[in-house]
Write a protein that binds this DNA or RNA. Structure first.
Length: 853
DNA sequence: CAGTGAGCGAGCTTCCGCTTGACTT
């Protein structure tokens, strides 16, 4: 039935071919809306619609200094609306008091949050609403607009920005003859004044491209997610961006699992030059497969003559990296400063709000003329003219919209800033990267010395690199994820001559294993998504958060395993063979898929290859571009997509299966003779014994949660059955039983109504009474330390010291004690007053958005 | 923080992109 939408053996389909659910449908999806001459009608209609917005009269209509012409009224003369309040503040300074500048804080209108909000029957008409947290802002803007003679819509120049302007136009009830649309690319006085002089219309083609993007994402997200709720687990989600992000991680994990490590011997010799003391280290230019080969080679070397047969010197140039975009900033801040993607963005936001850097959500590598000029000046002043080189960078990433500049300091000359240590570090990184991007190439000389062996095959080679002119390297050196990428770097070689005969000091062959593919880090995932043109600068950090919130992936702490490797050394005393141990495969903070992520991914791959295709976003972006160019109607593009997508949704929904997606039968329980399953339950992966629906069986099935590190893909019947031994009685302590179990937050002990976590080093299945008692006593000790004070007359109240400082615990709730109060001196009344004050404050009502903390 | 989960049932969950707050539990 679904044969024709089954994953096609890993090939990336160029368009939507071979994924068409039913025979006879148009395979080329958007083929019939490709640019054709006959489509001008729609374009003209829209153009006509918006001619009324004042195409002709908008240009040069408003004189810049119209003071004398205008009557003195209380009316504000000009209202400018931008997207960001920080930007508004800056611009207001440039424009003077004739202009009031306000911010829309991004979009002011969107599809309803709780409903599908797309009228499929009526040409995909979107149902927009003003979100609750924007209502107050919108009424303020409306009042200001009414009170202004001219409203200037100055949102960004990209698709989303154009839509923001259009929504403002509609929602604020603006009039064509008093509304202007302007854009500027840098926040300087000249650029803004120039923008004011050259207003244009709202580009409805661009707006429609945005509506298409919005509607498509809603269709995908809101039609796929409910399928997952039914087939896998409630409250899951799927989407054009997040599902592909999960796919990348799942597939990488599979590559790692399938990876077979191979070993080979790397041979390194230390030679002594004819002067009798200088050493030269060189590596054999081939690797040896087996130990036998190593032994043969080393014994040949014992009697061999080693001669320098070649010295080559080659100049090498290195060029600086372009200035930062959001994605490259996130990568470098992770590599150099160890910041997470969201940390980087928060710190950058503060720098931006303090006016220290340009906007931090950008995909552009472009620098403004102003920035180019000041960078040049800074380089000439500090390093001299041989260090300067004018460079212009071009954005290569797919789907870039380039509404902003690259991320750079607002004032490049400004080397020192005030702020937190983190802010200073990030600022320094941004500044150095910006300056380096306008600096000269570094020049290096790479020397390769080759040493021949008269008895055996191969040559020993030494590579060294010397910087002859540091150029941009004086300021900035881009890091790489691959640590052992350039070993030659900075390696100085001794002076030698061709024909010199060397004696060996020692020759060592070390067994090395080929490396499995690396797991994604947050930053490397962002880089991959950007390469694929999936997601935008404003969504990289939230997307990573989402796939973790849904528990599709976790930041892993994989413990490494130990392995031994062989080392064979030839010294004047003979050949020595030793074994050494190393840890491998350890991974901290890398992204690892969970069972849920894997099951959801496999399910989506089975049915929805259409949206799971790595090229899906790139393909629809092409369609959005043609809408923006006025060559296609947005509703037709969406219709083409929907006619293809929705039937698959219906088919996937109609599948009636006995078992849930990802369910696996492990075998039979020897005690009851009932089947044992693993599957994704309401609370995650679990094992189940028996099925209640069989006959009138009064016996309910039994359930157990999988432990950390176990997977429904790999767990065995024995391991699964072991889980049913929990909760388990460990023994008695102080007359009360001690039990061990696994709960929501991991393994724990229970004793006398109190809970104690079991650390990773111990297992609840095997923990002994002695170990348990030690844990209980350690917990008591810790509690005693955190205890500060108790009142006899109020046994439910206690002053304690916690992670966030001193607090009062009272009736199951905690209340923070302010810094200026000494907790030990507090009286009962002090405490009650504090509790009273805290409960009067409007408690945080925003519980809905952050259910899992 | 804490051992959840078989159903005659109520109602909820969800997307991607723009943008900042209020929170210090």
């Amino acid at each position: 039935m679904f044969a024709n939408i089954a994953p096609s053996a890993g090939t990336e389909t160029p368009m939507f071919a071979n994924i068409v659910p039913s025979a006879g449908a148009d395979n080329s999806m958007f083929a019939n809306i490709a640019p054709t001459k006959g489509k001008k009608g729609a374009k003209r209609a829209i153009a006509l619609l918006f001619l009324r917005a004042g195409r002709k009269e908008s240009i040069f209509c408003i004189p810049l200094h119209p003071i004398s012409n205008l009557k003195q009224t209380s009316m504000q003369k000009n209202l400018v609306i931008v997207e960001s309040p920080a930007k508004a503040k800056t611009i207001e300074k440039f424009l003077g008091k004739e202009y009031k500048v306000l911010s829309s804080y991004g979009h002011i209108r969107d599809l309803k949050t709780k409903e599908f909000s797309i009228d499929i029957e009526h040409n995909y008409a979107p149902e927009y609403e003003i979100p609750a947290d924007k209502r107050k802002l919108v009424s303020e803007l409306k009042a200001e607009a009414k009170n202004a003679q001219v409203v200037w819509l100055a949102s960004d120049e990209d698709r989303e920005g154009e839509a923001i302007s259009w929504h403002l136009y509609e929602v604020l009830g603006l009039q064509p003859d008093t509304t202007r649309r302007i854009v500027f690319h840098e926040i300087t006085k000249t650029a803004i004044l120039h923008a004011i002089e050259t207003p244009r219309d709202i580009d409805m083609n661009l707006v429609n491209a945005q509506q298409a993007r919005r509607v498509l994402d809603r269709i995908v997200g809101f039609q796929l997610s409910p399928i997952l709720w039914r087939k896998v687990k409630p409250a899951l989600s799927a989407g054009r961006v997040q599902s592909v992000a999960v796919r990348l991680i799942v597939e990488r994990e599979r590559e790692i699992n399938d990876f077979v490590s191979e070993s080979a011997y790397r041979v390194i010799a230390q030679f002594v030059l004819p002067d009798g003391k200088t050493l030269l280290k060189a590596e054999l230019n081939r690797r040896l497969k087996t130990k036998e080969e190593v032994m043969d080679f080393l014994s040949l070397c014992q009697k061999a003559t080693f001669t320098i047969d070649d010295i080559t010197k080659k100049p090498v140039r290195k060029s600086p990296a372009p200035p930062f975009t959001t994605s490259t900033l996130q990568q470098e801040a992770a590599r150099k400063l160890g910041y997470s993607v969201s940390q980087t963005m928060m710190i950058a936001q503060r720098l931006y709000e303090s006016g220290l850097i340009t906007y931090m959500r950008t995909d552009s590598v472009n620098l403004s003329d102003l920035a180019l000029g000041t960078a040049k000046e800074a380089i000439l002043n500090t390093y001299g003219k041989e260090y300067y080189k004018f460079r212009q960078y071009h954005t290569k990433s797919k789907g870039a919209q380039e509404a902003h500049e690259a991320i750079r300091p607002t004032y490049i000359a400004n080397a020192e800033i005030s702020g937190s240590a983190q802010e200073k570090k990030l600022y320094d990184l941004i500044r150095k990267r910006t300056i380096a991007s306008q600096m000269a190439d570094a020049e290096l000389e790479r020397t390769t010395i080759s040493v021949s062996i008269n008895q055996a095959e191969g040559k020993f080679v030494a590579v060294g690199e010397v910087v002859t002119f540091d150029g941009f390297l004086q300021v900035y050196h881009e890091s790489s994820d691959d640590e052992n990428e350039n070993e030659a770097e900075g390696n100085l070689l001794p002076r030698v001559q061709t024909g010199e005969v060397l004696t060996w000091k020692d020759i060592t062959a070390t067994e090395r294993f080929s490396q499995r593919p690396p797991r994604y880090t947050e930053a490397s995932l962002v880089r991959r998504l950007e390469e694929l043109g999936i997601g935008r600068p404003s969504t990289y950090a939230p997307t990573i958060q989402t796939i973790q919130n849904r528990e599709y992936v976790v930041k892993g702490d994989k413990e490494g395993a130990e392995r031994t490797y062989a080392v064979c050394t030839l010294t004047p005393k003979g050949i020595k063979e030793t074994e050494k141990k190393e840890l491998f495969g350890a991974d901290r903070g890398k992204l690892i898929p969970t069972d849920i992520g894997t099951v959801v991914n496999d399910f989506l791959m089975q049915y929805f290859q259409l949206v799971m295709d790595y090229n899906f976003t790139a393909n629809v972006e092409k369609e959005f571009d043609s809408i923006a160019e006025g060559e296609a109607e947005w509703t037709k593009v969406i219709d083409q997509f929907y006619k293809m997508f929705h039937p698959i949704v219906e088919q996937a929904t109609a599948i009636r299966t006995e078992h849930k997606v990802g369910e696996r039968l492990l075998g039979t329980d020897p005690k009851s003779g009932k089947p044992v399953f693993v599957k994704i339950g309401r609370f995650g992966p679990m094992v189940q014994i028996g099925e209640s629906k069989s006959e009138k069986d009064d016996e309910k099935p039994h359930f157990a949660t999988l432990m950390k590190g176990q997977s429904i893909e790999t767990i065995t019947l024995d391991e699964a059955l072991k889980l049913f031994e929990l909760p388990r009685t460990v023994g008695e302590f102080e007359g009360k039983t001690v039990t061990a179990a696994v709960g929501r937050f991991g393994p724990f002990l229970r004793h006398d109504g109190k809970f104690v976590s079991i650390p990773k080093s111990l297992n609840p299945l095997s923990i002994t009474l002695d170990e348990a008692v030690a844990l209980i006593q350690a917990k008591r000790e810790k509690d005693a330390q955190s205890f500060i004070k108790r009142f006899d007359e109020e046994p439910e109240m206690e002053i304690r010291n916690g992670r966030f400082g001193p607090y009062i615990a009272y009736q199951g709730k905690n209340y923070k004690i302010p810094k200026d109060v000494a907790p030990a001196d507090m009286t009962r009344d002090d405490c009650l007053a504090l509790i009273q004050a805290a409960s009067e404050k409007p408690a945080t009502k925003k519980r809905t958005t952050r259910k899992k903390a």
